[in-house]
Write a protein that binds this DNA or RNA. Structure first.
Lengths: 346, 346
DNA sequence: GTGAAAGCGCTAACAC
DNA sequence: GTGTTAGCGCTTTCAC
């Protein structure tokens, strides 16, 4: 460790007490201007750096916030992390990132780790396989500030930030219908995820509003969430043949969207299906076969989530009123109308 | 903070001294088996969790390692981070990730932060815009363990882990030549980066070995490293017209590879150029226009780098001999031979 | 085999 | 305005 010089050293060198040095460094009002400059200058000269570990121990807070995401390699999450970082650093907080890889056990262990590490608060996007929330509710009840983002957790009294998933999916499904598609499948991650159920809601609402029959055989959940392409291949193969015989599919997950493109690319001939998926990949618009996509404002989501958490952390009184922020998703249409479909695929 | 129960509490409850509890928890040999089980069981019962902050302060080490990468949203780095994490967690280390965004100032500040946070060691992939290395050499001289990965820093006595960039680029350029291409450009990130100069070396070696003339007008460096597509558009436009008139390009950077594909996709008609680039994007094989690519073993690189660092951290004697690990890159050819080119693009 | 006491670096209540 | 002192939770000599 690299804290050669301590407050004591400065105190000794300047023949004043450590507490005076401490106060001077923290710009306390009860220290004379003369002493302050004296201390500050000397500290700068010998390159003093305060030891945050000692501060944490004393102050019972670490000035760091813990983040749990499924996977940093997922563009959505890395963009969100960038948003989180930008706000956290501005406010003097450190960010500790952990990944659940959509595994419940890992989520539990990582959150334990973060709490052990004395993070002041948590920014959580739930793992897809979490169905027992007690590890989180317990912490929350004990007073640890938690803000949920993306994959939120209804029924817990705290800030939540996510995309307006119901509406985004509704728009996407409606667009497909307007373009002439009628056999539209829904492909989602684990059904207990808020993003899955909300997007499914948007999908069913759109069908209903456009007088299309809801067919449960067209609604599928990928247990492996895109990590297992065979799972997706099987589902798509089934959906593309009789009796489902879909002409379009709405995909409610980043990872599944790109995985589906990969699977479709292996089909020969290329199936006549129009795909629209949630994705924040930076190259989603360059993929072949083409995919229309709903892009979330991941960076902003991270920023807002971090801001909300810091609001709690810095609030002098306990906060009782929490809101849920919904960000607009942006729909990018790269498909064709149904009647042109066959020509387009030649 | 959430450390309701402390060693003192256990000591009080069991009517023994805190030091005995501490020793029992750490499985010290000077504690009787009876006392140990007594303490361990009680600790488990009341869910005691040791406070790592206090431990860090006492032990002068934090059991955490700091990581600096350009950008977690870059697939290469997020894969490397996964490798780092897997090894670090196995060995009881925490990972703190920071991003330079290829900015020198940010690199300096972030490393300062990490050191302030008392990380036990550093895993560094240099920012593209770093030319002054004193912030790192100073820390290194003061004894802070540092391991470089990916973008390494020759001339510093420590472990380094990277791809065999010279060979990978050599193979790629040679393949282009064998496929009939002769006007081959080189597009790289900042020239001071090890990955740029090494890959350029491989490129020039290949030209020489195949008796092709080296033309410096065909070698370009993108100062913005792919962040600015206009820069890449300008360079590519120039290279694709007279007098350069290239028929292939080797791209020595992840970000520039995908950025180049995007730029090319905007050209109408699609230029007759074969692209081969370094990329760890998980969808690079689905991009259109097609791009051949060299994939690095990022996960393994992260694992090895972390392993090397932990070796230093846990070594009881100072290490004097350091090696540089070179991992093989994997070349994926998705292009055509030159004589077929025109037909292929119809 | 166990306990008492000091101290890691910092802060804050309490003196003066 | 500044100094004294105690203590955050843990470890570790040094005693016994």
């Amino acid at each position: 460790m690299f804290h050669a010089v301590t407050i004591k050293d400065i105190a000794k060198a300047l023949s004043i007490s450590p507490s005076t040095v401490s106060r001077a460094l923290r710009d306390s009002h009860e220290i004379s201007a003369g002493t302050k400059t004296l201390v500050l200058e000397y500290a700068k000269k010998i390159n003093y750096r305060s030891n945050p570990i000692a501060q944490s121990l004393k102050n019972q807070k670490s000035n760091s916030i813990g983040v749990l995401v499924a996977d940093v390699a997922n563009s959505f999450f890395s963009q969100a992390i960038n948003g989180i970082e930008s706000v956290a650093y501005e406010n003097g907080y450190h960010v500790i990132i952990t990944q659940s890889h959509d595994d419940y056990e890992r989520e539990v262990v990582n959150i334990e780790h973060l709490v052990d590490r004395c993070v002041d608060g948590l920014l959580i996007s739930m793992s897809a396989h979490t169905t027992d929330y007690s590890h989180l509710t317990q912490l929350h009840e004990r007073g640890l500030p938690i803000v949920f983002f993306d994959r939120i957790m209804p029924g817990i009294e705290t800030y939540q930030v996510t995309t307006d998933n119901v509406n985004s999916a509704y728009e996407a499904a409606s667009l497909l219908i307007k373009k002439g598609y009628s056999q539209i499948a829904f492909l989602g991650n684990a059904p207990q995820l808020s993003i899955t159920s909300d997007r499914l809601q948007g999908y069913t609402d759109a069908l209903k509003d456009h007088s299309l029959r809801y067919d449960e055989r067209l609604v599928r959940f990928c247990d492996q969430g895109g990590r297992n392409s065979q799972e997706i291949k099987n589902i798509l193969s089934e959906l593309l043949s009789e009796p489902a015989n879909i002409d379009a599919v709405l995909i409610a997950s980043d990872q599944i969207s790109t995985a589906a493109v990969r699977v479709l690319s292996t089909f020969d001939p290329l199936p006549s299906v129009t795909v629209i998926g949630f994705s924040n990949s930076t190259v989603i618009d360059l993929l072949s076969p083409r995919i229309s996509y709903i892009q979330q404002n991941a960076f902003k989501m991270g920023q807002i989530a971090a801001q909300k958490l810091i609001t709690i952390l810095q609030s002098t009184y306990p906060i009782r009123e929490f809101d849920t922020t919904l960000l607009r998703g942006k729909l990018h249409w790269r498909g064709k109308s149904k009647n042109k479909l066959i020509a387009d695929h030649m």
